[in-house]
C-alpha cells in the first residue's frame, strides 16, 4: 500500500512536470524540465524494483540527452513561436486515444499481482535457472548478456547504426567533401 502511494505521488509530480513542459515557450526551460522528468522517472523505477533501469535512465536522461538537446537549441532557436492553431482538435484526439487505452486497462491484472500472466512465464524460469547456469547475483545482467544475448547484439547494432546516421547527417564530413569538389572544379 505504501509503495502504491509513493508511486502515485511520484506520478503526480511527473504529470505536473509534463504539463509545465506543454506550456513553456522558452526551449531552455523545456530541456531543463525534461531533465527533471528523467530524474523523477528514475526514482519511480527504483520504487518498482528496476534498479538497473533507474541507473540507466538517470545517466542517459538527465545527463546525455540534456546536453544533446542544449546543443540542438544552440544550433536552432531558443524560443518556440506562438501557436497559430487552437489546441482543441489535438486535445480531442488525445482524449479519445486516452479513453481507449483506459478501457484496455480494465482487463489487466492488478499492479503487483504475483499471479499475473507476466509472472508465470519465462521470468521465474530465468530467476530459478540462473542460480545454476550463471552463478551470478545480478539476474538482469545474466539475461541481458547470455539468455538474451542475440537481443542485445541487435540493440548494440541499432545504437551503432544511429551513431552512423548522426555522423552522416551533421558531422560536416559530407559538406567538406562537397566544398573540396567545388574548389577543384
Amino acid at each position: 500500500m505504501i509503495v502504491t502511494i509513493i508511486d502515485i505521488l511520484l506520478f503526480f509530480m511527473l504529470v505536473m512536470t509534463a504539463l509545465a513542459i506543454v506550456n513553456r515557450r522558452r526551449l531552455f526551460s523545456v530541456v531543463m524540465l525534461a531533465g527533471v522528468f528523467s530524474l523523477l522517472t528514475a526514482l519511480l523505477f527504483v520504487t518498482m524494483d528496476a534498479v538497473d533501469v533507474a541507473f540507466t535512465e538517470a545517466a542517459v536522461g538527465a545527463g546525455i540527452s540534456t546536453v544533446l538537446m542544449l546543443g540542438t537549441i544552440a544550433q536552432t532557436s531558443r524560443r518556440e513561436k506562438d501557436p497559430t492553431r487552437s489546441g482543441v482538435l489535438p486535445f480531442f484526439v488525445v482524449a479519445v486515444t486516452g479513453a481507449a487505452l483506459v478501457y484496455g486497462t480494465l482487463d489487466m491484472p492488478n499492479f503487483g499481482d504475483p499471479n499475473a500472466p507476466a509472472q508465470l512465464h519465462v521470468g521465474p524460469d530465468y530467476l530459478k535457472n540462473s542460480v545454476e547456469d550463471m552463478d551470478l547475483p545480478n539476474v538482469v545482467t545474466s539475461i541481458l548478456a547470455s539468455y538474451r544475448g542475440y537481443d542485445t547484439l541487435g540493440e548494440t547494432a541499432v545504437v551503432f547504426t544511429a551513431g552512423i546516421g548522426v555522423l552522416l547527417l551533421i558531422s560536416g564530413l559530407a559538406g567538406r567533401r562537397r566544398r573540396e569538389d567545388e574548389e577543384e572544379n
Binding site: V60, G61, A118, Y126, I143, D151, E155, V166
Partner: peptide
C-alpha cells in the same frame, strides 16, 4: 520482481537516446 521487463527496457533506453539524437 520479474527481471525480464528490466532487461528489455534497459536496452530500450539506450536505443531511445541514440534514436533521439538522430
Amino acid at each position: 520482481s520479474n527481471p525480464l521487463p528490466h532487461v528489455l527496457i534497459l536496452t530500450a533506453i539506450v536505443v531511445g537516446i541514440a534514436t533521439t539524437s538522430l
